[in-house]
Design a protein around this nucleic acid. Structure first.
Length: 167
DNA sequence: GAATAGATCCGC
DNA sequence: CGGATCTATTCA
């Protein structure tokens, strides 16, 4: 399997989020298929961490693409993101994955991070250059990607930036 | 310094 | 539906 290129993450987060569905994610020695993603942008997206201005937390979104962005939400759950967009601050949130070995579904970014044992230490890792987490291309093309509004947010709820692989 | 909201999940 | 539980950011 081929590692996704740096360029893959250089586009608008909406594009990257859509393209990430059905890709293979490997963390430590566990492998899963990405089932659902959400895109977060800089412009016109009040739900994004990067909407207002650059801060210490969202700096990665501004400064990088193809890097891991992890943060703690509600004091108990980690959320796994990948930074995107060469020209703007952007990120893609990984919401669902399915384990390749067991076929178990982990539906929710807190559950995904719990399963993969992802914590704050993953923040800032370069997807091209680390031995903990990797995203591989998948040569099988799927057509039935469903587009929907994002979940669990209070702002910009009209944006159709959630992408789900549907059987 | 204090207050607040949050890209969540679980259990009642 | 409400609680858990913490931190980055905002407000005074």
């Amino acid at each position: 399997m081929k590692l996704l290129s740096k360029q893959f993450f250089s586009f608008d987060s909406e594009i990257v989020a859509k393209n990430l569905v059905w890709k293979t994610i490997q963390v430590w020695n566990k492998r899963g298929i990405i089932i659902e993603t959400e895109a977060y942008k800089q412009d016109c997206d009040q739900a994004s961490h990067a909407f207002w201005k650059k801060t210490t937390r969202n700096a990665l979104m501004y400064e990088t693409y193809g890097f891991v962005y992890v943060y703690l939400i509600y004091g108990m759950y980690y959320c796994l993101n990948f930074t995107t967009d060469k020209n703007k601050a952007g990120a893609v949130l990984i919401r669902w994955i399915q384990d390749i070995q067991t076929n178990k579904i982990y539906d929710g970014c807190g559950k995904v991070c719990n399963y993969f044992q992802i914590d704050k230490k993953f923040n800032g890792l370069d997807l091209q250059n680390n031995d903990k987490i990797k995203i591989y291309d998948n040569w099988i093309k799927i057509k039935n990607i469903k587009v929907a509004t994002r979940k669990w947010i209070s702002k910009a709820t009209d944006k159709l930036w959630r992408f789900i692989w549907e059987i």
